[in-house]
């Protein structure tokens, strides 16, 4: 039986790990490799590095730090941010990233997902989706790394999940923006709806604030993994204690 994954997300800006509240007011929380090694040591199942400055500024992720991370840790990690082509993906995968995640560029060019899956296999292609409720419907947002450039897309979130999978996504990370950074719990309603249309692994993002939130999202929304940032960066929750507690609640986790 697959263990439920605990995934610290490291938002990267200018080579440093940062964290904002509701995607704004980013503060510096540390060095990439030092944090990656710490989380791997504490029992994180996977890490996601999201270069939040990459898409809005039309920059690409610097593969140099990808190599540094690959050398330092012995758990899988995913790199997101500014990947617009199979060449962009290749440099990151060959630098040691296990998966690459596309978000805004896939909205602008959905066929990118097909090209990436054809070239590298769907197992390493993650589609990240930023979503919030607007007028009673969950809608996709793009360029969320920069509040000035964030756009509401015409796409409905659930339809975009189905299309992304059809095109070759091997995993979906659904970031529920209304919950992001506020630590009041995952968006169970939206994630449950997403789960119903998502036959590839689904990762919950946005809202973790207490250990009970993880149990809730695994049990109620049946997601495969739960991503969180601030509660880990600020040591509100220790990954070791979280996993021990989840095991006590009979959630299958890797000790």
């Amino acid at each position: 039986m697959l263990a439920k994954r605990i995934i610290p997300c490291l938002d990267v800006r200018d080579g440093r790990v940062v964290k904002g509240v509701r995607f704004r007011n980013h503060e510096d929380v540390g060095d990439i490799v030092a944090l990656a090694a710490r989380y791997a040591g504490e029992g994180a199942d996977e890490l996601v590095f999201y270069d939040i400055s990459a898409s809005p500024d039309s920059r690409t992720v610097e593969p140099e730090w990808v190599k540094r991370v690959a050398r330092a840790i012995d758990i899988p990690f995913c790199v997101a941010g500014g990947i617009r082509s199979t060449d962009d993906a290749r440099t990151r995968l060959f630098a040691g990233a296990d998966k690459i995640s596309v978000n805004s560029p896939a909205l602008a060019d959905p066929d990118l997902i097909n090209r990436l899956a054809d070239e590298f296999g769907r197992q390493c292609i993650v589609v990240g989706i930023d979503s919030r409720e607007i007028g009673g419907e969950w809608r996709v947002h793009s360029n969320t790394g920069d509040p000035g450039k964030t756009r509401t897309e015409t796409r409905a979130t659930l339809e975009w999940i189905e299309e992304a999978i059809e095109r070759g996504a091997g995993e979906i990370v659904l970031n529920c923006m209304d919950q992001d950074g506020v630590r009041e719990g995952y968006d169970i309603k939206q994630l449950t709806a997403a789960r119903a249309v998502c036959r590839v692994p689904l990762i919950a993002s946005g809202g973790a604030g207490a250990m009970a939130h993880f149990e809730e999202v695994f049990r109620q929304a049946d997601v495969d993994g739960a991503l969180a940032a601030s509660v880990f960066h600020k040591q509100v929750i220790g990954i070791g204690e979280l996993k021990a507690w989840l095991a006590q609640q009979s959630i299958e986790v890797r000790p």
């Binding site: 197992q123 993994g225 890797r254």
Partner: peptide, 10 residues
């Protein structure tokens, strides 16, 4: 089953 089989297993 949910595929690809991705993650930590025993």
């Amino acid at each position: 089953g949910r595929l690809p089989h991705m993650g930590w297993n025993r």
